[in-house]
Design a binder for these strands. Structure first.
Lengths: 194, 194
DNA sequence: AAAATACTTGAATGTATGTTCAATAAATAA
DNA sequence: TTATTTATTGAACATACATTCAAGTATTTT
């Protein structure tokens, strides 16, 4: 027996960044060996092929984002304050003009959803679980009497998801705080309005 | 002298569809010769190279969309009715599950914006002119006293742009009328609210 | 009609790519 | 220690790709 020498999470995050900057198709194995420090054979041994590494990177991405999400919402603050902080974070990411801060799930879905059914399934499932997590936040807001008891948490979460997708795209054309912050503010206001 | 034998607009729309389905990187010259009916040499003669054909296809896309937009809004109906019809169209496109109905500008920006500055500029400019056209619609709504005179048309258009970006992404994960229509309805309602 | 011009054809070219593999090294088990 | 298993190395491979080009064809100009 012999264990792998490399740190799997580090390798996956390096691959993740490379895929985020170049996209899947334009990321070469050479890019990946440079970014991860692994030789081709090691990548094929550990992840089967380029696509396998990509899928593993997507899964790592989801895990990292989920953990970040839980950390942000795991407190006793008002759910709406947490939502506000969450949107501020997304605005910040948009301002950074850093491709490694954008969403690997939507980017991959946009690039490959049409041609790779499995990757479409994986990304859609992860996006769906994000939607559900947001719905939970609105449920909490309801319990905290911050929004009307008649509110449809599911729907509000869907609307917020839509808004965040849109906000990220706007950020890619206008990474400007004076553009993004008012949009985020109105989005939140429209969500909590009775 | 001798004129090209092919119909340039037809060729560009065929290329457009191919790029929309496969993305730029995964569209091969072979795909393009098959889709357009042109031989490689003809493509290189008319458009320089694959990238030149891509840029020409983007420009054709913008022209087609602008024309469609103007047709939809060139009437004496209420500006809000026109907006409502416009959103219904976008919902329809989302339901179609047809990659050729999605937005070539945002898709190209997402795929290549990080690596090709010129394509980033072109797509951002076209998206910006769309934003301006929508701002004009809100100006009209203001003149028609359909929205408050204090409304910021520029901002409302930006918010609508954000919503449409988001709606299109939601459609790619859930092409379901029961998901998309309520989102479009709330988006419009939030726009015209005082 | 003849010359000139410009488009069309499709095979050929060189390059870049994802992948494989045999040799080597390291770790564990017997 | 020895045997066995598994990871690492990096050169080699086959393929697929964007692009070129020389020959052929059609149209216009003189």
């Amino acid at each position: 027996m012999r264990n792998a020498e490399f740190d799997k999470e580090k390798v996956l995050r390096a691959a993740m960044c490379t895929f985020l900057v170049n996209g899947y198709a334009k990321t070469s194995m050479q890019d990946l060996t440079k970014a991860t420090g692994l030789h081709p054979g090691s990548i094929y041994c550990a992840f089967d092929n380029k696509r396998g590494l990509f899928i593993a990177a997507i899964e790592q991405y989801q895990q990292d984002r989920s953990q970040q999400f839980e950390q942000l919402f795991a407190n006793e603050h008002s759910a709406l304050d947490n939502l506000s902080r969450y949107l501020a974070l997304i605005v910040q990411e948009g301002l950074s003009c850093d491709a490694t801060q954008s969403c690997l799930l939507t980017k991959s879905l946009s690039e490959m959803g049409e041609q790779d059914e499995q990757i479409k399934q994986i990304t859609c499932n992860f996006l769906q679980s994000w939607h559900l997590a947001l719905a939970q936040v609105f449920e909490t807001a309801k319990q905290q009497k911050l929004i009307s008891a008649q509110s449809n948490s599911q729907f509000l979460a869907q609307y917020l998801v839509m808004g965040i997708y849109g906000l990220r795209t706007v950020a890619s054309t206008q990474p400007d705080i004076d553009v993004l912050q008012p949009l985020a503010d109105k989005l939140l206001a429209d969500l909590i309005r009775q």
